[in-house]
Design a protein around this nucleic acid. Structure first.
Lengths: 337, 337
DNA sequence: AAATTTATCGAAAGCGCTTTCGGTGAAATG
DNA sequence: CATTTCACCGAAAGCGCTTTCGATAAATTT
């Protein structure tokens, strides 16, 4: 591999000139530049990123933080898809992602500390809840940051148009003739869940549909199991809904399971529409009607928002709302009399 | 944040002593160590990782490589689960993961070059095929490495006992009375797929079951779509199988879809057993019988194997085979006469 | 021919940290 | 009391790179 010192020795130039040649400075002649570049190629020279970072105070790394609240890590298909898209976008610009945790060689430390230690150029936080102390700390810091799927005016954020999403779902069900529409919501601590609730409420209100007691139920943290439980509660209601809008696909899948286990059919007895459009949605039985979040866009926008802050060396607080689509499949159907 | 120079100024000691105090050297008195540590805490001092790496030639980072062959990236639930488990294990030891790609600030470079540039302490490669030039290059290099889900004698590897897996599946079907057992295989370039084929063949042989023409079919790169297509081919066979062992859950889900679309039922008409036990397996209809791979173990073992090489500064070539389990659910049933 | 630009290069300092090695004064030993 | 040991500390070099600033020689201008 070798260093610029080796290169200097070989070519007979100073390390200064070598460095300049490698970095395309204008005050080095084409001829010597060619020589040096050639020598570098010959010996398979690669600059040491740490030395570069130390010297330039730019590490070309982006720290990514997952909340540990809901123990999903990077396993959740939705967040996972976002990260993948984010990664592609940032990679193209030359950034590497580093996944940091709260522990560093036995020392317990905050995410911020970890990121400071690693001297990342920027931070992306995925899958978090507003209240998380660590997230707040990150937002308060001076490191460029973008947070996904959360609402805040203190930093750049990008999330889906969850309000419209809720409305889309309810309207779809309404058009199919449903009037008894329940909502299995995400936990209230999650902005996205909250907005979907709001969308649901607004839509119901606009359609002049009452929300019976118990029709708005907390499904927790979007897991299949919690969705199933919530649905069971719903099924036990005196006046059972004919349709249910579920704030996440995994929960929706759980809900469908509960329905099936109760001896009912989807969509003949109960229609269900999910949220996210994770890959599996189109493979469960029946195929899930759902509100699609554009993970591709979300990831890209987040990347752009972050990189812009990094290169311009100033924090900006943009709120980027990505539109959603309703994907109609087979878990919703006309209400049966 | 500050540096050790600041700390030196504040406490009145030299940077040498500061550094030693922070690193628990024995030749600094308890009293001054206490002072320095206190001052460090007060100012929120954090060591700069790049400076440390530069000086110690240890970066406490591990590079992870995904093959780009089958465009799944980190989206595939199986590899994803492995990485997650790997991450937890390495984090605990103080390592951060860095996801590198083949491009670095416009320059096109190999994975090896990228990792050398970043000066990672070790490399884990996930989701690859034997033939990949980049993987080979990594294996040839002198950086500690472990590769997952691939067989090789040139480096440490960890993968599931795919041979037993294939056998397990076939025997299970046999016990249910099936004699016409087909296999939707993964592409032959993938070691794991190859081993499962071998397991299938051996089991069939041991049971004295012939493998009719067309019963062993290539399902490509484990996608739902490819599984579906393979199953359609199988269904078009003159003598249709009563059971099929599929080399991956996603393919199996596709296969079930094909079966359903053909107006047949699982398992009454055709039994199917998958491979992997991805999370969705227990939520599709019918719930998928499958060979479970222990992603938790795989990730941990990979982490241990890698870290051992890093700390002992010598490459070792261990082959670590992780046992698999058959998870019987509802996609398999007794053959119907 | 003298004065001024211009092109090309290198010395040196600095980024923040580790580590070797030598130097103190105090305590222990004879 | 002289000598050896020990505990504690710091100077300095080094890790590999960037960047400022000055130096030199060649080219240009007057």
């Amino acid at each position: 591999m070798g260093t610029i010192y080796d290169l200097a020795k070989i070519t007979g130039f100073s390390i200064t000139t070598v460095s300049k040649a490698l970095n395309n400075y204008s005050d080095v002649s084409e001829k010597t530049k060619a020589k040096i570049v050639q020598a570098a190629a010959d010996m398979g020279y690669l600059p040491n990123a740490h030395a570069q970072s130390l010297s330039t105070k730019r590490s070309w790394t982006i720290g990514v933080m997952f909340s540990e609240a809901n123990e999903v890590g990077m396993m959740h298909p939705f967040f996972n898809a976002i990260i993948e898209s984010f990664r592609k976008a940032t990679e193209q610009q030359g950034y590497d992602l580093i996944f940091a945790s709260r522990n560093l060689r036995n020392r317990d430390m905050s995410y911020l500390e970890h990121f400071q230690h690693r001297a990342v150029d920027g931070i992306v936080v995925i899958c978090s809840d507003q209240m998380d102390k660590h997230v707040q700390q990150l937002i308060q810091s001076s490191i460029p940051i973008v947070v996904v799927d959360m609402d805040s005016t203190d930093c750049s954020v990008v999330f889906s148009d969850n309000l419209s999403g809720g409305t889309l779902a309810v309207n779809h069900l309404y058009e199919l003739g449903h009037r008894l529409i329940a909502h299995i919501a995400g936990d209230m601590t999650i902005d996205a869940g909250l907005a979907r609730i709001e969308g649901y409420k607004q839509a119901m209100d606009r359609l002049a549909l009452p929300i019976p007691d118990g029709y708005l139920i907390n499904g927790g943290f979007f897991s299949v199991e919690e969705g199933k439980q919530a649905m069971q509660t719903l099924l036990a209601l005196p006046k059972r809904p004919t349709a249910v809008f579920v704030a996440g696909d995994q929960m929706a899948i759980g809900a469908m399971e509960a329905i099936h286990e109760a001896g009912l059919r989807v969509p003949q007895d109960i229609s269900v529409v999910g949220y996210d459009d994770i890959e599996m949605s189109k493979y469960v039985t029946p195929k899930l009607t759902t509100v699609r979040q554009d993970t591709e866009q979300i990831g890209q926008h987040a990347a752009n928002l972050l990189i812009e802050q990094i290169v311009n060396k100033r924090r900006v607080m943009t709120t980027d709302i990505i539109p959603v689509d309703l994907i109609v499949r087979q878990s919703t159907g006309p209400v049966t009399p």
